[in-house]
């Protein structure tokens, strides 16, 4: 990337490469181990088990999952659930984050405190009353809306957008306001193009919550045809111990199946992490 104007010396570059490489191995190891473990015929938890061994390899764990779970339906349901959540998260998160960071309005402090409060309260505290509210009072059990609702607005995303908008230079907005632009125009024309990395970040960060969420969708729907992948896989995993040869391998295979779409999504999206040079935007 060209933005490194403070050039590193050669040894420093090498040092950086070594540190990053070693870190990457440390971080990649679990994923690697998970894939290896999921392909093992019999679980090998010794150190040697971390390396592939030709006479201990099988795809049986994946075949077992495939035969017991409708992967396609699970993926579609996960897509609807997660897509709904992410869409709401981004749209409402941008609005709320913008209001909290850029606009001056009475109640802003209180709203910020509320965002923090929602973030801080442990979900386990609210779970049963929340279920009663959504299933009984709103009548949303066995319904995608009921699945999505509690996750629809993500306080983390609001905080991410707020932080990102705060980072933008104020002059940018003041200049546009003098030109008579309304706040919505300002948000759309000035702020949004600059926060593209923040949107990508928020998508990647909040995607994983609903994608891996098991308990809530399961509480809200017992209808197998509507259950997201995480629920079907968790259901599968809770009882494989009684029915397959390598229960641990099945758990790992389930985790691989669940993680793979996310990793692909990340690879596709990460290239949007490019710099939007704010400095030139101010000048321009």
């Amino acid at each position: 990337m060209s933005r490194t104007s403070t050039k590193l010396s050669r040894p420093q570059t090498i040092l950086r490469a070594v540190v990053l490489g070693a870190g990457a191995i440390l971080f990649l190891f679990p994923f690697y181990y998970m894939v290896i473990g999921s392909l093992q015929l019999t679980p090998d938890t010794s150190v040697a088990g971390a390396f592939p061994s030709p006479d201990n390899i099988t795809t049986a764990n994946y075949e077992a999952i495939n035969s017991r779970i409708n992967l396609f339906a699970g993926l579609i349901n996960s897509g609807i659930f997660t897509g709904g959540v992410v869409l709401c998260t981004v749209v409402f998160g941008v609005l709320a984050g913008y209001a909290l960071a850029i606009l001056k309005w009475r109640g802003r402090g209180a709203t910020f405190a509320l965002v923090l409060l929602v973030q801080v309260v442990p979900f386990q505290l609210l779970m049963i009353p929340l279920y009663v509210l959504i299933a009984r009072n709103y009548g949303l059990s066995d319904n995608y809306l009921g699945m999505i609702l509690p996750f629809a607005i993500n306080s983390t995303a609001v905080l991410v957008f707020r932080q990102y908008f705060l980072q933008l230079p104020r002059e940018l907005f003041d200049a546009a306001r003098i030109d008579g632009a309304g706040e919505l125009t300002l948000l759309r024309r000035v702020a949004l193009p600059l926060v593209r990395p923040a949107i990508v970040t928020a998508v990647l960060l909040t995607f994983i919550g609903p994608w891996n969420e098991f308990l809530w969708p399961f509480l809200i729907t017992k209808d197998a045809a509507m259950q997201p992948l995480a629920v079907s896989l968790a259901n599968y995993v809770t009882n494989v111990a009684a029915s397959t040869a390598n229960p641990y391998g099945s758990v790992l295979a389930g985790a691989v199946v669940l993680a793979a779409p996310v990793v692909i999504l990340f690879i596709v999206f990460q290239r949007y992490f490019v710099s939007t040079d704010v400095g030139s935007a101010v000048k321009g």
Binding site: F214, K222, D223, A234, T238, N239
Partner: peptide, 8 residues
């Protein structure tokens, strides 16, 4: 309908 046998 099926429910998990486990902790949940």
């Amino acid at each position: 309908q099926e429910i998990p046998a486990g902790k949940s």
